[in-house]
């Protein structure tokens, strides 16, 4: 009984990491971040970050569609980061704070 509990403690996180739940969650978060970026004007002001986010999200969805959840989660996370970066930079540009704007400055 105890032995089974231990095994489930080890295996469960592994299963969760590659599960459709995690991937779907990541994709959802990326979609939200992308929508926020667009709302901040990131699609126009930060085309590099925005485009990267869009392509990564599309690919994440495609991977999810063929049950490659790990890849889907990874690409979705990348999409989220880039969307977030686009949003923050767009906001900085809108504030006129462009003096030393660096793509690496935003995480």
């Amino acid at each position: 009984m105890r032995k089974g509990l231990w095994i489930s403690f080890i295996i469960l996180p592994l299963i969760l990491a590659c599960s459709p739940v995690t991937a779907t969650k990541s994709i959802h978060r990326a979609e939200k971040a992308l929508a926020a970026a667009v709302a901040a004007g990131g699609d126009k002001k930060c085309p590099y970050e925005y485009t990267t986010a869009v392509i990564s999200l599309e690919y994440a969805r495609a991977r999810e569609g063929v049950s490659e959840f790990e890849a889907a989660a990874t690409f979705a996370e990348n999409a989220r980061k880039m969307a977030e970066r686009a949003r923050v930079k767009a906001a900085l540009i809108a504030d006129g704070n462009t003096a030393r704007l660096d793509e690496e400055d935003v995480e």
């Binding site: 085309p47 590099y48 970050e49 485009t51 990267t52 392509i55 690919y59 490659e68 890849a71």
Partner: peptide
């Protein structure tokens, strides 16, 4: 490239990553 061709740069990098992934699979 970042200043004058951001979309193309983003696409080149992203597709390159995808190619790597597809190849690894």
């Amino acid at each position: 490239m970042y200043n004058c061709a951001p979309v193309e740069l983003a696409r080149a990098e992203a597709m390159s990553e995808i190619a790597r992934h597809e190849s690894s699979m």
